[in-house]
Nucleic acid binder design. Structure first.
Lengths: 136, 136
DNA sequence: TTTCTTGCAAAGATTTTGCAATTGC
DNA sequence: GCAATTGCAAAATCTTTGCAAGAAA
């Protein structure tokens, strides 16, 4: 399977070893890694990889809808290669983020609020993961 | 009305002019200001105010449940003095955040997911505010 | 060849911290 | 007076940017 390779072609982005490594690391990854997580992982096989390349690539992929930038972690941006609409469960103890693929109906009571054009919504459940429940 | 003053007493925090100014600025403010917004506003009447005081105060107030830290703005932390459960509408163009006080039922299908103890949830609606709709 | 991408280093922005001086209680 | 708080400056993070060199198409 050459999902990553195909993605770059489809998105009209040049195919580079660094970019391939980035998407190969992200695809199927449900840990919602930060840019630094991506950098540190990918650098193992690509020692010359720079932050700039990671940030540039993530930014471009985001703009083209190939991944989502999450805001649930107050300390840094996290990235989600899963672009299917879904929600998240965030551990306030360790910042772990878990996908919730369940379809949760939300009455669009907010549509049109304040003249906004509502384009999407995302539910953030907060709580404590099993490990952090024990620590407390 | 001395809401701010009373708050600090109730929370067991010492009452200082800086702290009073911070809560007085926040209470009733629906702009969801950042720490820097707070700093710049409060400094007008308290020229010696420092970042440290703003950050310390916001952090303590947050820990004691007197305000909420929002993560919806990817660039910085924003603060909400409204601790009544509610949701937000975020303009992806200008980062404006609007309160949605409507009670939106969410089937707690996620309760117990992955062994988490779910403590709360928050819906982020995204879209474009009236001004940003015109710009595009 | 032409255009885009990479890597490096420096800069920007936000947030945190150490500590002496000051203030609230 | 004691303990908590302030202010200043420096540092720690995270993220972005300019630009020359290099690689993709």
């Amino acid at each position: 399977m050459k999902l990553a390779e195909q993605s770059y072609r489809d998105l009209g982005m040049k195919l580079t070893p660094q970019r391939l490594a980035i998407l190969n690391y992200l695809d199927g990854n449900t840990l919602h890694p930060s840019a630094d997580d991506v950098f540190r992982s990918v650098r193992r096989r690509h020692p010359t990889m720079s932050f700039a390349t990671v940030y540039n690539t993530l930014e471009t992929l985001k703009q083209r809808g190939r991944l989502i930038e999450l805001t649930g972690d107050p300390d840094k941006k996290r990235f989600d290669p899963n672009t299917t609409p879904h929600h998240h469960l965030i551990c306030t103890g360790c910042r772990r983020i878990v996908d919730i693929m369940a379809d949760i109906p939300v009455t669009s009571a907010a549509a049109g609020f304040a003249g906004f054009r509502v384009l999407g919504h995302h539910i953030e459940f907060t709580g404590l993961c099993p490990a952090c429940q024990k620590k407390k």
